[in-house]
Amino acid sequence: MSAIVEVKNLSKVFLSKDGKVHALTDINLAVEEKSIFGIIGMSGAGKSTLVRCFNFLERPTEGEVRVEGKDLSVLTHKELLAMRTDIGMIFQNFNLLMQKNVIENVMLPLRITGTKREDAAKRARELLAIVGLEEKERAYPSQLSGGQMQRVAIARALANRPKILLCDEATSALDPQTTQSILALLKRINGEFGITVIIITHEMAVVREICDRVAVIEKGRLEKTGSVKEVLGDVE
């Protein structure tokens, strides 16, 4: 299997009032196509910055990010925007439009790619069926539970049939039971559609539950990478 995301010698430095902050230092990793890859670390370790380098929401200070073999740094702005439609992303706080109903939220990325309204609505209904919320299409996010909101966000992230789904602490705001159901959904999406899932988390249990491979990040450096068993050991 080939690597769908490849990171080489990546460093990210933020300039602040007190000087330079080294958020990430010399990161090297490869995520295999169609796998579920975990990146685990404590808060402030740099994992959110790292995942934002995968779609260039953050530009690395040094090093290279290749997605599907393409070096993101050489893309024009337009090409980068097009590339991002191939990479779905979900967040800890769901980040839905609170003034738009469920189906309009799911249709948002389809409007970016210029999909016709009827086709977009049809696709959005398919997606809502996949995440089990077909009855909620007219509801507003404020009427939904956290788990339901994350399902809407997942449907939205899948709208343009991406090859990669980035999950930034996607279950951290959810209770354990809802976390289980969201993880099961991610696993199903990975299996059924062959979407590579990259999970950023601080919860060991999340990694054990669904990841194939895992990278441990600490103070901006990659400590270990390997299979879940190698890296985290057996459950004691």
């Binding site: 779609n55 929401l57 925007l81 097009a82 590339m83 991002r84 439609t85 990479i87 779905g88 992303m89 967040f91 706080n93 980040n95 839905l96 439009l97 609170m98 003034q99 738009k100 948002l108 990325p109 409007r111 970016i112 790619t113 966000a153 939205r156 343009n160 980035l166």
Partner: peptide, 28 residues
């Protein structure tokens, strides 16, 4: 919410799209 703007950017939205379909909608 900066997160909602970031979500739209992650979908490949350009500046004008974010203004029209995120900022003006969420702030109405």
């Amino acid at each position: 919410d900066r997160g909602v703007v970031e979500a739209a950017e992650s979908m490949g939205a350009g500046v004008l799209f974010v203004i029209r379909h995120v900022l003006l909608v969420e702030a109405r």
